[in-house]
Amino acid sequence: MQLFKKYIKVITMCDEHGALTPIYIIWNNGSKYKIDKILEVRKAASKVGGCGILYRCRIGKSERSIFYEINRWFIESTNP
């Protein structure tokens, strides 16, 4: 299965130390999904190229990994 890098909109909170916490993911069609819990945060390389900070998140009953890479967010997607 081929994966693609898909840039997404993310609403975040930035604390007084500069740490980012993603709160919502917004798809291109405007659908908004609340991130219920951050399960893991670490530096990581993506399977689709590039590297950054990986946030493994729980959204409802699903887990999803999002990456923060040089001032923008992306996911590994099966759709380009």
Results as ranks from 00 to 15, higher is better:
1 M>Y: 02
1 M>V: 11
1 M>H: 04
2 Q>P: 15
3 L>G: 03
3 L>Q: 05
3 L>C: 02
3 L>E: 02
5 K>Y: 15
5 K>I: 13
5 K>T: 13
8 I>C: 10
8 I>L: 09
8 I>M: 03
9 K>L: 02
10 V>K: 00
10 V>T: 06
10 V>N: 00
11 I>V: 07
12 T>V: 15
12 T>Q: 08
12 T>M: 07
13 M>V: 11
14 C>L: 15
14 C>N: 10
14 C>V: 15
16 E>Y: 10
17 H>I: 05
17 H>P: 04
17 H>Y: 12
18 G>F: 12
18 G>T: 09
19 A>D: 14
20 L>S: 02
20 L>R: 05
21 T>E: 08
22 P>V: 04
22 P>H: 03
23 I>R: 05
24 Y>W: 13
24 Y>V: 05
24 Y>G: 08
24 Y>H: 11
26 I>Q: 02
26 I>G: 01
28 N>T: 04
28 N>V: 01
28 N>Y: 03
29 N>G: 05
29 N>H: 14
29 N>E: 10
29 N>A: 14
30 G>W: 03
31 S>T: 04
32 K>H: 11
32 K>G: 04
32 K>A: 14
33 Y>Q: 13
34 K>W: 12
37 K>E: 11
38 I>D: 00
38 I>Q: 00
38 I>A: 01
39 L>C: 09
39 L>S: 00
40 E>N: 12
41 V>N: 00
41 V>Q: 05
41 V>D: 00
42 R>Q: 09
42 R>E: 14
43 K>A: 12
44 A>V: 00
45 A>V: 03
45 A>N: 08
45 A>T: 07
45 A>D: 03
45 A>H: 04
47 K>S: 13
47 K>H: 09
48 V>Q: 01
48 V>I: 09
49 G>S: 06
49 G>Y: 07
49 G>W: 06
49 G>T: 08
49 G>H: 09
50 G>S: 08
50 G>C: 02
51 C>F: 12
51 C>L: 07
51 C>D: 13
51 C>G: 12
51 C>H: 14
52 G>I: 11
52 G>S: 09
52 G>E: 11
52 G>Q: 09
53 I>D: 00
55 Y>D: 07
55 Y>T: 06
55 Y>I: 03
56 R>V: 13
56 R>Y: 07
57 C>V: 14
58 R>G: 14
58 R>H: 10
58 R>W: 09
60 G>W: 11
61 K>T: 12
62 S>R: 13
62 S>V: 14
62 S>L: 14
63 E>F: 03
63 E>D: 14
63 E>N: 10
65 S>C: 04
65 S>V: 00
66 I>M: 07
66 I>N: 02
67 F>D: 00
68 Y>V: 02
69 E>T: 00
69 E>I: 02
69 E>V: 05
69 E>C: 01
70 I>F: 04
70 I>Q: 07
71 N>D: 13
71 N>P: 09
71 N>A: 12
71 N>V: 07
72 R>Y: 10
73 W>K: 02
74 F>L: 08
75 I>L: 07
75 I>E: 00
75 I>Q: 03
75 I>W: 01
76 E>I: 06
76 E>H: 01
76 E>T: 03
76 E>C: 01
77 S>H: 01
78 T>C: 08
78 T>Y: 06
78 T>Q: 10
78 T>S: 08
78 T>A: 07
79 N>T: 09
79 N>F: 14
80 P>V: 00
80 P>N: 11
